[in-house]
Design a protein around this nucleic acid. Structure first.
Lengths: 144, 144
DNA sequence: TTTCATGCAAAGGTTTTGCATACGC
DNA sequence: GCGTATGCAAAACCTTTGCATGAAA
Protein backbone atom coordinates (compact mmCIF):
# COMPACT_ATOMS: atom_id res chain seq x y z
CA UNK A 1 0.00 0.00 0.00
CA UNK A 2 1.30 3.43 -0.85
CA UNK A 3 1.14 6.29 1.55
CA UNK A 4 -0.44 9.46 0.22
CA UNK A 5 0.93 12.93 0.66
CA UNK A 6 -1.83 13.62 3.17
CA UNK A 7 -0.97 10.62 5.28
CA UNK A 8 2.67 11.59 5.36
CA UNK A 9 1.85 15.16 6.35
CA UNK A 10 -0.27 13.71 9.11
CA UNK A 11 2.72 11.76 10.32
CA UNK A 12 4.89 14.87 10.29
CA UNK A 13 2.21 16.67 12.22
CA UNK A 14 2.02 13.96 14.84
CA UNK A 15 5.72 14.35 15.44
CA UNK A 16 5.52 18.14 15.74
CA UNK A 17 7.24 18.88 12.48
CA UNK A 18 6.03 21.71 10.33
CA UNK A 19 4.65 21.25 6.86
CA UNK A 20 6.82 23.53 4.77
CA UNK A 21 6.69 23.97 1.01
CA UNK A 22 10.22 22.56 0.75
CA UNK A 23 9.24 19.38 2.53
CA UNK A 24 6.19 19.01 0.36
CA UNK A 25 8.19 19.40 -2.82
CA UNK A 26 10.62 16.72 -1.75
CA UNK A 27 7.84 14.38 -0.71
CA UNK A 28 6.12 14.82 -4.05
CA UNK A 29 9.34 13.98 -5.83
CA UNK A 30 9.52 10.65 -4.06
CA UNK A 31 5.84 9.96 -4.59
CA UNK A 32 6.29 10.56 -8.29
CA UNK A 33 9.55 8.59 -8.54
CA UNK A 34 8.66 5.70 -6.30
CA UNK A 35 10.67 3.18 -8.23
CA UNK A 36 13.90 5.19 -8.20
CA UNK A 37 16.79 5.43 -5.79
CA UNK A 38 17.60 9.10 -5.73
CA UNK A 39 20.71 10.64 -4.25
CA UNK A 40 20.59 13.96 -2.40
CA UNK A 41 22.12 15.70 -5.36
CA UNK A 42 19.57 14.20 -7.73
CA UNK A 43 16.71 15.26 -5.51
CA UNK A 44 18.25 18.71 -5.32
CA UNK A 45 18.34 18.98 -9.11
CA UNK A 46 14.64 18.13 -9.38
CA UNK A 47 13.75 20.45 -6.51
CA UNK A 48 15.48 23.36 -8.20
CA UNK A 49 13.41 22.87 -11.32
CA UNK A 50 10.37 23.48 -9.17
CA UNK A 51 11.79 26.15 -6.89
CA UNK A 52 15.35 27.39 -7.51
CA UNK A 53 15.56 29.04 -4.09
CA UNK A 54 15.70 25.83 -2.12
CA UNK A 55 19.10 25.08 -0.63
CA UNK A 56 21.03 21.84 -0.72
CA UNK A 57 21.29 21.76 3.06
CA UNK A 58 17.52 21.71 3.27
CA UNK A 59 17.42 18.71 0.98
CA UNK A 60 19.87 16.87 3.21
CA UNK A 61 17.98 17.84 6.34
CA UNK A 62 14.68 16.76 4.87
CA UNK A 63 16.03 13.43 3.67
CA UNK A 64 17.43 12.82 7.14
CA UNK A 65 14.12 13.69 8.71
CA UNK A 66 12.11 11.47 6.40
CA UNK A 67 14.49 8.59 6.97
CA UNK A 68 14.22 9.14 10.71
CA UNK A 69 10.45 8.88 10.45
CA UNK A 70 10.85 5.78 8.31
CA UNK A 71 9.05 7.40 5.41
CA UNK A 72 12.15 7.03 3.31
CA UNK A 73 14.84 4.45 3.56
CA UNK A 74 18.51 5.28 3.19
CA UNK A 75 20.36 2.80 1.03
CA UNK A 76 23.90 2.50 -0.21
CA UNK A 77 24.94 0.95 -3.48
CA UNK A 78 28.64 1.57 -3.07
CA UNK A 79 28.86 4.53 -5.44
CA UNK A 80 29.99 6.92 -2.74
CA UNK A 81 26.69 8.59 -2.06
CA UNK A 82 23.63 7.71 -0.02
CA UNK A 83 20.44 7.07 -1.88
CA UNK A 84 16.89 7.18 -0.69
CA UNK A 85 13.83 5.24 -1.63
CA UNK A 86 10.25 5.22 -0.54
CA UNK A 87 9.88 2.95 2.42
CA UNK A 88 6.89 0.95 1.39
CA UNK A 89 6.08 -0.68 4.68
CA UNK A 90 4.07 -3.54 3.28
CA UNK A 91 6.71 -4.39 0.73
CA UNK A 92 9.39 -4.76 3.31
CA UNK A 93 10.80 -7.72 1.47
CA UNK A 94 12.09 -5.87 -1.49
CA UNK A 95 15.70 -6.22 -2.50
CA UNK A 96 18.18 -4.99 -5.05
CA UNK A 97 19.98 -6.40 -8.03
CA UNK A 98 22.97 -4.22 -8.82
CA UNK A 99 24.72 -4.53 -12.15
CA UNK A 100 28.46 -4.28 -11.59
CA UNK A 101 29.04 -3.18 -15.16
CA UNK A 102 26.48 -0.50 -15.95
CA UNK A 103 25.36 0.26 -12.40
CA UNK A 104 21.71 -0.32 -13.12
CA UNK A 105 19.68 -1.20 -10.05
CA UNK A 106 16.58 -3.30 -10.37
CA UNK A 107 14.37 -4.68 -7.69
CA UNK A 108 12.75 -7.90 -6.74
CA UNK A 109 10.40 -8.98 -4.04
CA UNK A 110 10.74 -12.00 -1.89
CA UNK A 111 9.71 -13.13 1.53
CA UNK A 112 11.86 -16.22 1.82
CA UNK A 113 14.02 -14.44 4.32
CA UNK A 114 11.38 -14.72 7.01
CA UNK A 115 12.41 -18.17 8.15
CA UNK A 116 16.09 -17.34 7.94
CA UNK A 117 15.48 -14.25 10.02
CA UNK A 118 13.72 -16.24 12.74
CA UNK A 119 16.50 -18.78 12.74
CA UNK A 120 19.16 -16.16 13.24
CA UNK A 121 17.25 -14.30 15.91
CA UNK A 122 17.00 -17.52 17.87
CA UNK A 123 20.57 -18.66 17.42
CA UNK A 124 22.29 -15.39 18.06
CA UNK A 125 19.97 -13.66 20.51
CA UNK A 126 19.71 -10.71 18.16
CA UNK A 127 16.45 -8.80 17.87
CA UNK A 128 16.12 -8.12 14.16
CA UNK A 129 14.14 -5.10 13.01
CA UNK A 130 15.21 -4.79 9.40
CA UNK A 131 17.28 -6.38 6.71
CA UNK A 132 18.91 -5.54 3.42
CA UNK A 133 19.75 -7.97 0.70
CA UNK A 134 21.75 -7.05 -2.36
CA UNK A 135 22.83 -9.13 -5.30
CA UNK A 136 25.69 -8.09 -7.50
CA UNK A 137 26.08 -9.36 -11.03
CA UNK A 138 25.43 -8.65 -14.68
CA UNK A 139 22.09 -7.43 -15.93
CA UNK A 140 20.62 -8.84 -19.12
CA UNK A 141 22.17 -6.09 -21.25
CA UNK A 142 25.67 -6.54 -19.87
CA UNK A 143 26.03 -10.31 -20.11
CA UNK A 144 27.74 -10.40 -23.48
CA UNK B 1 40.02 -22.15 3.58
CA UNK B 2 42.24 -19.21 4.29
CA UNK B 3 44.64 -17.84 1.77
CA UNK B 4 48.20 -17.49 2.95
CA UNK B 5 50.42 -14.49 2.38
CA UNK B 6 52.33 -16.50 -0.19
CA UNK B 7 49.24 -17.38 -2.17
CA UNK B 8 48.14 -13.77 -2.25
CA UNK B 9 51.56 -12.59 -3.39
CA UNK B 10 51.33 -15.18 -6.11
CA UNK B 11 48.05 -13.66 -7.20
CA UNK B 12 49.57 -10.19 -7.27
CA UNK B 13 52.42 -11.55 -9.29
CA UNK B 14 50.12 -13.16 -11.82
CA UNK B 15 48.47 -9.80 -12.39
CA UNK B 16 51.76 -7.97 -12.83
CA UNK B 17 51.60 -6.10 -9.59
CA UNK B 18 54.73 -5.61 -7.55
CA UNK B 19 55.21 -7.02 -4.08
CA UNK B 20 56.10 -3.96 -2.06
CA UNK B 21 56.70 -3.82 1.69
CA UNK B 22 53.66 -1.55 2.04
CA UNK B 23 51.40 -4.08 0.37
CA UNK B 24 52.79 -6.85 2.51
CA UNK B 25 52.21 -4.90 5.71
CA UNK B 26 48.60 -4.25 4.77
CA UNK B 27 48.02 -7.85 3.79
CA UNK B 28 49.45 -9.07 7.07
CA UNK B 29 47.11 -6.74 8.94
CA UNK B 30 44.11 -8.36 7.30
CA UNK B 31 45.48 -11.85 7.80
CA UNK B 32 45.93 -11.12 11.49
CA UNK B 33 42.56 -9.39 11.86
CA UNK B 34 40.47 -11.68 9.73
CA UNK B 35 37.35 -11.26 11.80
CA UNK B 36 37.37 -7.46 11.74
CA UNK B 37 35.95 -4.89 9.35
CA UNK B 38 38.64 -2.27 9.16
CA UNK B 39 38.25 1.16 7.65
CA UNK B 40 41.04 2.78 5.66
CA UNK B 41 41.85 5.04 8.60
CA UNK B 42 42.02 2.09 10.97
CA UNK B 43 44.32 0.20 8.65
CA UNK B 44 46.44 3.32 8.36
CA UNK B 45 46.80 3.56 12.14
CA UNK B 46 48.01 -0.02 12.38
CA UNK B 47 50.32 0.41 9.42
CA UNK B 48 51.98 3.42 11.00
CA UNK B 49 52.78 1.43 14.12
CA UNK B 50 54.79 -0.87 11.90
CA UNK B 51 56.23 1.71 9.53
CA UNK B 52 55.48 5.40 10.18
CA UNK B 53 56.60 6.42 6.70
CA UNK B 54 53.69 4.84 4.86
CA UNK B 55 51.22 7.34 3.44
CA UNK B 56 47.44 7.28 3.68
CA UNK B 57 47.08 7.41 -0.08
CA UNK B 58 49.02 4.19 -0.36
CA UNK B 59 46.62 2.56 2.06
CA UNK B 60 43.67 3.65 -0.06
CA UNK B 61 45.34 2.54 -3.26
CA UNK B 62 46.25 -0.83 -1.79
CA UNK B 63 42.76 -1.43 -0.45
CA UNK B 64 41.34 -0.59 -3.87
CA UNK B 65 43.75 -2.96 -5.52
CA UNK B 66 43.03 -5.81 -3.15
CA UNK B 67 39.31 -5.32 -3.56
CA UNK B 68 39.74 -5.29 -7.32
CA UNK B 69 41.52 -8.63 -7.12
CA UNK B 70 38.78 -9.90 -4.82
CA UNK B 71 41.24 -10.55 -2.05
CA UNK B 72 39.39 -8.08 0.13
CA UNK B 73 35.74 -7.17 0.03
CA UNK B 74 34.54 -3.62 0.43
CA UNK B 75 31.54 -3.32 2.70
CA UNK B 76 29.49 -0.45 3.98
CA UNK B 77 27.72 -0.36 7.31
CA UNK B 78 26.28 3.10 6.93
CA UNK B 79 28.77 4.87 9.18
CA UNK B 80 30.13 7.07 6.43
CA UNK B 81 33.26 5.12 5.65
CA UNK B 82 34.02 2.04 3.62
CA UNK B 83 35.24 -0.97 5.45
CA UNK B 84 37.17 -3.94 4.20
CA UNK B 85 37.20 -7.55 5.17
CA UNK B 86 39.00 -10.61 4.06
CA UNK B 87 37.16 -12.16 1.19
CA UNK B 88 37.15 -15.76 2.29
CA UNK B 89 36.12 -17.38 -0.92
CA UNK B 90 34.80 -20.59 0.59
CA UNK B 91 32.84 -18.80 3.23
CA UNK B 92 31.04 -16.72 0.73
CA UNK B 93 27.85 -17.11 2.67
CA UNK B 94 28.79 -14.97 5.56
CA UNK B 95 26.59 -12.10 6.55
CA UNK B 96 26.33 -9.30 9.06
CA UNK B 97 24.21 -8.48 12.07
CA UNK B 98 24.47 -4.78 12.79
CA UNK B 99 23.32 -3.41 16.13
CA UNK B 100 21.54 -0.12 15.55
CA UNK B 101 22.22 1.00 19.09
CA UNK B 102 25.87 0.28 19.84
CA UNK B 103 27.03 -0.30 16.27
CA UNK B 104 28.53 -3.68 17.01
CA UNK B 105 28.81 -5.89 13.95
CA UNK B 106 28.71 -9.64 14.34
CA UNK B 107 28.68 -12.28 11.70
CA UNK B 108 26.81 -15.38 10.84
CA UNK B 109 27.12 -18.00 8.20
CA UNK B 110 24.35 -19.35 6.12
CA UNK B 111 23.91 -20.91 2.76
CA UNK B 112 20.13 -20.78 2.50
CA UNK B 113 20.45 -18.05 -0.06
CA UNK B 114 21.58 -20.48 -2.72
CA UNK B 115 18.12 -21.46 -3.81
CA UNK B 116 16.86 -17.90 -3.67
CA UNK B 117 19.78 -16.83 -5.79
CA UNK B 118 19.02 -19.42 -8.44
CA UNK B 119 15.40 -18.42 -8.45
CA UNK B 120 16.19 -14.80 -9.04
CA UNK B 121 18.77 -15.46 -11.71
CA UNK B 122 16.17 -17.43 -13.60
CA UNK B 123 13.28 -15.03 -13.18
CA UNK B 124 15.13 -11.81 -13.92
CA UNK B 125 17.82 -12.91 -16.32
CA UNK B 126 20.45 -11.52 -14.04
CA UNK B 127 23.80 -13.24 -13.73
CA UNK B 128 24.58 -13.09 -10.03
CA UNK B 129 28.20 -13.12 -8.92
CA UNK B 130 27.89 -11.97 -5.33
CA UNK B 131 25.48 -11.02 -2.64
CA UNK B 132 25.37 -9.13 0.61
CA UNK B 133 22.88 -9.66 3.38
CA UNK B 134 22.64 -7.41 6.39
CA UNK B 135 20.34 -7.57 9.37
CA UNK B 136 19.73 -4.56 11.52
CA UNK B 137 18.48 -4.84 15.09
CA UNK B 138 19.48 -4.98 18.72
CA UNK B 139 22.30 -7.14 19.98
CA UNK B 140 21.95 -9.08 23.20
CA UNK B 141 23.48 -6.27 25.26
CA UNK B 142 21.22 -3.58 23.88
CA UNK B 143 17.86 -5.27 24.20
CA UNK B 144 16.94 -3.84 27.61
C1' DT C 1 4.47 35.42 18.97
C1' DT C 2 7.16 31.62 19.63
C1' DT C 3 9.58 28.14 17.79
C1' DC C 4 11.21 25.65 14.30
C1' DA C 5 12.92 25.59 9.34
C1' DT C 6 15.68 27.64 5.86
C1' DG C 7 19.70 29.53 3.04
C1' DC C 8 24.11 30.49 2.75
C1' DA C 9 28.70 29.77 3.43
C1' DA C 10 32.08 27.58 5.92
C1' DA C 11 33.81 23.49 7.91
C1' DG C 12 34.25 18.47 8.38
C1' DG C 13 35.30 13.95 6.90
C1' DT C 14 36.48 10.56 3.51
C1' DT C 15 38.57 9.46 -0.74
C1' DT C 16 41.09 10.65 -5.04
C1' DT C 17 44.67 12.73 -7.81
C1' DG C 18 49.02 15.15 -9.68
C1' DC C 19 53.58 15.03 -9.56
C1' DA C 20 58.31 14.28 -8.39
C1' DT C 21 60.93 10.70 -6.23
C1' DA C 22 62.04 6.01 -4.99
C1' DC C 23 62.07 1.24 -5.65
C1' DG C 24 60.76 -3.64 -7.32
C1' DC C 25 61.92 -6.58 -10.84
C1' DG D 1 67.11 0.77 -16.47
C1' DC D 2 62.15 0.67 -17.11
C1' DG D 3 57.93 1.25 -15.37
C1' DT D 4 55.19 0.99 -11.59
C1' DA D 5 54.42 2.35 -6.59
C1' DT D 6 54.93 5.73 -3.14
C1' DG D 7 54.56 10.09 -0.26
C1' DC D 8 53.07 14.41 0.07
C1' DA D 9 49.95 17.95 -0.49
C1' DA D 10 46.20 19.65 -2.76
C1' DA D 11 41.81 18.89 -4.54
C1' DA D 12 37.49 16.67 -5.09
C1' DC D 13 33.49 14.91 -3.14
C1' DC D 14 29.65 14.26 -0.09
C1' DT D 15 27.59 15.73 4.09
C1' DT D 16 27.04 18.49 8.32
C1' DT D 17 26.90 22.73 10.99
C1' DG D 18 26.64 27.77 12.70
C1' DC D 19 24.18 31.60 12.37
C1' DA D 20 21.09 35.18 11.02
C1' DT D 21 16.73 35.48 8.71
C1' DG D 22 12.17 33.95 7.52
C1' DA D 23 8.03 31.45 7.89
C1' DA D 24 4.55 27.88 10.06
C1' DA D 25 1.29 27.28 13.65
Amino acid sequence: MKLTLEEICEKLHQNDYKITPQRQIILKIFLENAEQHLSAEEVYAIVRDINPDVGLATVYRTLDLLAELEILQKVNFGDGKSRYEFSDLEVHHHHHLICVKCGKVTEFDDDQLETLEKNIAQKSNFKIIDHQLKFFGYCSNCQT
